[in-house]
Amino acid sequence: MNFASDNVTGASAPILDALVQANAGAMPAYGEDPLTASLTARFREVFEHPELAVYPVATGTAANALALAAMVPPYGLCLCHAQAHVTTDECGAPEFFTHGAKLAHLPGTGARIDPGALEAALARLPRSVHRMPAHALSLSQASEAGLVYAPEAVARLSGIARRHGLTVHMDGARLANAVARLGCRPAEITWRAGVDVLSFGASKNGALAAEAIVVFRPDLADSIAYRRKRAGHLLSKGRLLAAQLHAYLADDHWLANASHANRLADRLARGLRAVAGVRLAWPVEANEVFPILPVRLARGLRAGGAVFYDWPTESLAPGESVGEDEVLVRLITAFSTPEAEVDALLALARDSA
């Protein structure tokens, strides 16, 4: 019963089949192959954008860091939530690849940026050569607390950023889960809502190792090809990245995978809410569940073979808290999580309560 992450899973069958097919024969290297060449048209179709550029990479860290490097100069700031993945889990990669830019932290319940806090932060930034100016805003979709930004929320934050001259980046590691939950078109929560550059995730949702930097503003795309090569993220056998992304998007496979993960997260949440002493820290809006458990129950789950992480409490809703005999944990479902595994965890929780 491994609910630690959606990174613990393997790859889905359609993506593995696509890799086997792409593996046969010889093709030009370094992204000059026909699979990579046709990827731009595929992304333009999915995102309904006639001019976007797409740059496949193997990791989300590379996608985020290289995207921000194209958006923020070495002397600039990127604003993000204090719990955003770009600032808590990238080992300083954005700062490294921007050659010194800083990440400035913003508050917000459920790891979503509060618009008022963004306005206030930008208003109080001094206009002085002695201080770093803000150049970009980064949004996590879904947030680190599993909450999604609806199109109007993205548009509101992007509008604030735009009025202050900032570009907007979206860390879409779980974009598929957000699109599936909201039932919207991908364009509606990205470029049509003001996003300039998207880190498009696939590895958490069925790919073996595939992400992409999707650039909606042509003027921001100029340097990314060079940055990707210089950083060592231009794969010689680029067709194997492109093959994964083609299979991921084909026949809405990415959304089917995400819908399954979301549905099982809902099932898990419903079952946990029925267990004595358990409450949810935040609503379930993607494929992550954050229950507040009695410590005794958490120990019982782990003793019974359940794997999950404890989670920080900084962005709990006002009035919510975790008691001394409680712990906030994160449970994640994936595209391949079986219903029986969720039911086994729930049975264990009832027995351990």
Score class of each variant (00 low, 15 high):
Cys80Asp: 07
Pro312Asn: 10
Arg267Ser: 06
His85Val: 11
Ala142Phe: 02
Ser236Met: 04
Val307Arg: 06
Glu90Arg: 13
Ser143Asn: 09
Arg267Gly: 04
His260Asn: 04
Gln21Asn: 02
Ala281Leu: 14
Asn262Arg: 04
Leu255Gln: 10
Lys102Gly: 10
Arg112Tyr: 06
Ser315Glu: 15
Phe97Asp: 01
Leu316Met: 09
Asn7Gln: 05
Asp89Arg: 02
Ala212Ile: 10
Ala63Leu: 11
Val197Leu: 04
Glu314Pro: 06
Phe200Gly: 01
His85Lys: 12
Glu188Cys: 07
Asp114Asn: 14
Tyr75Asp: 15
Pro283Tyr: 13
Gly238Phe: 06
Asn262Pro: 10
Asn262Cys: 15
Arg279Ser: 07
Ala101Phe: 14
Ala306Tyr: 02
Ala101Pro: 05
Gly110His: 03
Ser199Trp: 08
Leu35Trp: 01
Leu198Gln: 09
Asn262Phe: 01
Trp282His: 13
Leu264Ala: 12
Phe3Asp: 01
Val148Thr: 10
Val148Ser: 00
Ala250Tyr: 02
Ile189Gln: 05
Leu35His: 02
Ser140Asn: 07
Val215Gly: 02
Val284Lys: 13
Arg181His: 11
Thr167Ala: 14
Leu301Asn: 10
Leu125Thr: 00
Ala37Arg: 07
Val57Met: 00
Gly305Thr: 11
Ala180Gln: 04
Arg228Cys: 01
Arg162Ser: 09
Arg127Gly: 00
Ser138Thr: 00
Phe97Tyr: 15
Gln21Tyr: 02
Ser138Arg: 04
Leu68Tyr: 01
Ala93Gln: 04
Leu35Asn: 03
Ala150His: 08
Val284Gly: 00
Ala69Phe: 04
Ala82Thr: 06
Leu79Phe: 15
Glu152Met: 03
Val215Gln: 01
Ala207Met: 10
Ala303Trp: 00
Ala142Ile: 01
Ala225Asn: 07
Ala344Gly: 05
Cys78Gly: 11
Phe43His: 14
Leu235His: 12
Lys204Ile: 03
Ala274Glu: 15
Cys78His: 07
Ala193Glu: 15
Arg124Gly: 03
Glu51Arg: 11
Arg124Thr: 14
Gly183Lys: 13
Trp191Ile: 13
Thr98Pro: 13
Asp222Glu: 15
Ser259Ala: 12
Ala41Lys: 01
Gly110Ser: 04
Val195Arg: 11
Arg181Glu: 12
Val342Tyr: 02
Gly277Thr: 00
Thr109Asp: 05
Val168Gln: 12
Phe43Met: 15
Ala178Gln: 14
Ser38Lys: 14
Ser259Phe: 04
Thr98Trp: 14
Gln141Arg: 11
Leu240Tyr: 11
Pro283Lys: 11
Leu297Cys: 10
Arg192His: 07
Arg181Ala: 15
Gly323Arg: 02
Ala121Val: 06
Leu175Ser: 08
Leu348Asn: 02
Asp219Lys: 09
Gly100Asp: 10
Arg185Gly: 06
Gly76Val: 12
Arg44Thr: 07
Val275Lys: 04
Glu95Asp: 08
Val197Glu: 03
Ala212Gln: 05
Leu137Ala: 09
Thr61Pro: 03
Ala344Gln: 08
Ser336Glu: 01
His105Ile: 11
Thr98Ile: 13
Arg270Ala: 03
Ala84Lys: 01
Thr313Leu: 07
Thr109Glu: 06
His81Met: 03
Pro283Phe: 13
Arg273Asn: 05
Glu32His: 07
Arg296Ser: 10
